[in-house]
Design a protein around this nucleic acid. Structure first.
Lengths: 204, 204
DNA sequence: ATTAAATTCGACGCCGTGTAGACTCTCCAG
DNA sequence: CTGGAGAGTCTACACGGCGTCGAATTTAAT
């Protein structure tokens, strides 16, 4: 869409640093898959990104900050996709759609999501990010349960509390399944969907 | 497990080392509660136990080994208590009893159980210990589900797979609740029990 | 009492983090 | 074209934690 506005639209957005930053994050993701968080050193990341440790510290203040940025980038993607998914009216369809979406998300970003969960304790900012994400999912599950006829409220047997438990069930089940294989992920999804449907009173 | 560690009991009588070993584990547990795993240094543990770093390495080969031993001690306690609990015939009672027991376990050992879960990834031996523990619980849940009429089998909607998902739900829900308060733990228990009952087809 | 095993200690080397300061490159104003 | 500001990069260093070593000391068995 470059019109003919003179000197206004230079490549104002493509700074050299932005490219490097992405390279660092990409390398970090690759190394995370390959060696895990603890074994991955700042030197490794820098080397993978084609710079030295000193240069990396120009972009990020610490190893934790790098990983936090990576999680933030991924989580933002999650939010975006969640927003984009249309909410079906029919609870059964909504549940099926949600589980399908969840499978895709874990297939695509399982690694980063797992590390986000693992680091939630030790890195407060990541914990913040992840708990916010969980809250979104809990709210969505709550809405579906209520639409399916589960009594609204926060008491142990009402929609909100049940949604929270179901969310943790899904998180943990996918967490483990995504370490294994795609087939496991699909089976895990079926199981979670089944329990969700039962909990909503949609099947016996 | 592995290796030949010096302080292996040859005599049944109280060795000085056994006392020290317990002191180390107790200190480790206290520090874990106070500073968390990463912030806790080997020097801290040694100091708390009234010895020097060098002396600690006589008992344990590494920081990870200390915490592994602590987890092993706690987990052994879990198994013991699980074995001691009589299995009720009536599914409803069995479920209620299991949840009650779970609340007690988390109240008493929540901290160590949480760190065991957190370190399952990075310390393979702890992962082994915990996954074995989880398998015990999954087997117990499976048995209850089958006795309540859920079809046996490992397919996504049969007892075994459902038990696994329920186990993860309980683990994760208690994990979070035990970070908050005892009240939360009790409410979490009610919610999990409710979902378990529904999944077993015992209530609608 | 002698001797071997058990236990403790202080000091050392290694590795990873984060910081400091100097150097290079790019781009734009004068 | 030039010189300077700021982005980007480098090497070198200080700090701290982990795990090891060997020597010193205590305990237990003969």
């Amino acid at each position: 869409m470059s019109g003919h506005h003179p000197a206004r639209s230079r490549r104002a957005t493509e700074r050299k640093g932005d490219v490097r930053e992405r390279a660092i994050l990409d390398t970090c993701e690759a190394l995370l898959a390959q060696k895990g968080y603890d074994a991955m050193t700042v030197g490794d990341i820098a080397q993978g990104a084609g710079i030295t440790r000193g240069a990396l510290y120009f972009y990020f203040g610490s190893k934790q900050e790098v990983v936090t940025a990576l999680v933030a980038r991924t989580v933002e993607h999650l939010w975006e996709r969640s927003r984009a998914t249309a909410q079906a009216d029919e609870p059964r369809q909504a549940i099926a759609a949600a589980m399908q979406r969840t499978v895709e998300l874990w297939n695509e970003h399982g690694l980063v999501m797992r590390t986000a969960i693992d680091l939630s304790l030790t890195v407060p900012e990541i914990g913040e990010l992840w708990s916010h994400t969980a809250d979104l999912f809990i709210a969505a599950i709550t809405a579906v349960l209520e639409r399916a006829g589960v009594e609204a409220g926060t008491e142990p047997e009402q929609a909100s509390a049940m949604a929270r438990a179901l969310c943790w069930m899904i998180e943990r089940t996918f967490y483990h399944a995504s370490q294994e294989s795609r087939e496991n992920l699909q089976e895990a999804s079926s199981t979670c969907e089944h329990i969700w449907l039962i909990s909503a009173g949609l099947i016996t």
